[in-house]
Design a protein around this nucleic acid. Structure first.
Lengths: 218, 218
DNA sequence: TGCGTACCGTACCGTACGGTTCGGCAACCT
DNA sequence: AGGTTGCCGAACCGTACGGTACGGTACGCA
């Protein structure tokens, strides 16, 4: 079973990024500003005011605004842990359950408002400044979840319940079946909760479709 | 057969949006700036300089910066026409060819640099200002292509080559199988050409998978 | 008691942007 | 010729932001 746990306390993310608790709290407020008002609301003065700290401290801790943003990403990523509970012997039924849990977790992660805000921020910066933040977000955020999925798929293949050549390609198919254009529409501003309610029931069908495509026959 | 034609001349997009040729040329330069440098490069002074026009004219024509951006979106949308060539009687083979052509066209559209730049822009604005630009982009851009796909799917069902309940859901599946996370990764700054080369060969497999899922048996 | 450290709050500076105004020029009408 | 229109280029204005500097304060330590 794959579980995504989100620790809401500042401690977890801060500790994961090697920051003090105070700095984590500041990043938490910064994330709040970003979620609430987008990139325009993420000003150094605004963060300082919201977090009751001085701009001087912000620059001492994070270097500059980009450093602050990078710290926000790694801090947020540190709050999300993917914990794999060894599943013992996979059966067709447990595999399906695990895939379904993964699908729901994936939808939850993608539709989270902090995740959406950070993705919007990174996408906005992608054009003007290489792909620095994009890579960071990809590496610290989704790579983990995709690795867990890859492990699950591999276990399914080992148990002769799945048949595929490339694990990456199979994962891409699973992802596409689950997410479709949901993520993009959320990023473009469509009501995230409504879209989540629209796509969550489809998770089951997506998993069934995936098993139809990649399930070992017999 | 569904064909996406992109008219590169300013005339087509301008005429479609009810603008003069000169104004279309200005929007073309503005799009160029946006593609090259992202939102930060899209300043009123910059557009005026690049297009050899005055800021006064910009504000007379487009109202304000947001009006300019909206005009850019509708102008760009006006350049892309989806033309449906009636396919006569569908066979399993022609349906597959049409689906494949649609898949390739979809990948082409999504990986276009102007499309990527406009999507980044709309996503960046989504957080701070409702979903105005996002809706506009969705409405003028992708709705058309999705309607064409829906028509194709409907034709396939009429010909008893496809079996599905909801056309929207079937289209969502097709879209997910083709695109997976390609679009998001491009938006985040990954090399678009490389990703396109990675996903184009998979279009065939995506169509086959779709036919496996929704093809009428027998 | 004195000193260093870390921090807050505020003021400040340079720059850049959105938007407005104005002088000037060319074309077009009458 | 004189007036109107449309446009350019440049100057201008108010604002907001990133980044820096400074005075003041609480706390730890000798």
């Amino acid at each position: 079973m794959i579980i995504l746990q989100v620790f809401e306390q500042a401690k977890a993310g801060a500790a994961a990024a090697g920051l003090t608790e105070r700095q984590g709290a500041v990043l938490e407020r910064a994330l709040g500003l970003l979620v609430e008002g987008g990139e325009r609301a993420l000003t150094t003065a605004g963060v300082a005011r919201a977090a009751n700290c001085s701009k001087e401290s912000l620059y001492k801790w994070f270097g500059d605004r980009d450093g602050l943003i990078s710290a926000m990403i790694t801090y947020q990523a540190g709050k999300v842990r993917t914990v794999e509970v060894s599943a013992g012997a996979l059966t067709a039924e447990t595999l399906r359950k695990h895939l379904l849990a993964f699908a729901r977790d994936l939808i939850d992660v993608l539709s989270g408002d902090v995740s959406l805000a950070l993705n919007r921020l990174a996408i906005g910066q992608a054009s003007r400044e290489g792909a620095g933040l994009g890579r960071l977000l990809q590496e610290r955020g989704r790579r983990q979840i995709s690795r867990r999925a890859a492990a699950l798929l591999e276990a399914g293949r080992k148990a002769k319940l799945l048949a595929f050549d490339g694990a990456d390609e199979a994962y891409g198919t699973l992802y596409g079946l689950i997410v479709s254009d949901m993520h993009l529409r959320m990023l473009l501003g469509e009501n995230a909760a409504a879209l989540k309610n629209e796509f969550s029931p489809r998770a089951e069908k997506a998993v069934d479709a995936f098993l139809t495509l990649y399930g070992a026959k017999g």
